[in-house]
């Protein structure tokens, strides 16, 4: 989910991240206020149209839904059982619309732009001792290193398997933690070396 940004030059890409996030929040809240299946269906169609405007493919629409498909199906079943078919369809469509809306923002907004607007949005916390630039750097680092962490975990797990340790969480967690600590050391040196002054 981290290389979600899909480069492009559509009007949606060009909108400022703050506007997009705000629009998403307003739209999302709006969706929760309506109780009408027809409106939700129209909203869903509108969001899919926005994907089209952003130059995104049907696959990318599907990719937003696929990871949570089972949860949606579960909700559908549950609601069907509790409240009947029309409510179930309504609830699930609404949820899918929200997911697609959030996905649209991440697909069309670069992490750095998102972080930049977040950083300026957090300025009001400065008097409380929060340094928005540091928060921004921390988020960037998290985005950058989650895939690295995933890769390290795979490597360690494979190394353990090669030595016959199949399912020990401790056997995986310990070496991963140690490598992460060493890595954190290196990263902080690298940040230092590139002239970062908070």
């Amino acid at each position: 989910m981290l290389d979600l940004y899909s480069p492009g030059h559509s009007p949606i890409h060009k909108l400022s991240p703050g506007v997009k996030i705000l629009a998403m929040m307003v739209g999302g809240t709006g969706l929760f206020l309506v109780e009408n299946l027809g409106i939700v269906a129209v909203a869903l169609a509108a969001v899919i149209a926005l994907y089209k405007i952003a130059g995104l493919s049907a696959t990318q629409v599907w990719n937003q839904i696929r990871p949570v498909l089972w949860i949606l199906i579960f909700f559908l079943g549950l609601q069907w059982w509790l409240a009947g078919a029309s409510v179930a369809v309504f609830v699930v469509l609404r949820l899918a619309t929200l997911l697609l809306l959030a996905g649209l923002v991440t697909l069309t907004t670069r992490a750095s732009d998102m972080i930049e607007s977040l950083t300026s949005g957090l300025r009001f916390l400065r008097p409380l001792g929060v340094n928005p630039a540091k928060v921004g750097l921390a988020i960037s680092l998290a985005l950058r290193f989650i895939p690295v962490l995933a890769q390290i975990t795979t490597e360690v797990r494979e190394a353990q398997k090669a030595r016959g340790m199949e399912h020990s969480i401790v056997a995986v967690a310990m070496p991963v933690a140690i490598r992460m600590l060493k890595m954190a050391d290196d990263i902080s040196d690298a940040i230092d070396a590139r002239g970062y002054r908070p």
């Binding site: 940004y5 670069r110 992490a111 750095s112 960037s140 950058r144 690295v148 290196d186 590139r194």
Partner: peptide
């Protein structure tokens, strides 16, 4: 420039 390129690239893109 450090040995491990992975640890000196600090931004996702």
């Amino acid at each position: 420039v450090f040995q491990n390129p992975d640890n000196q690239i600090v931004f996702p893109v």
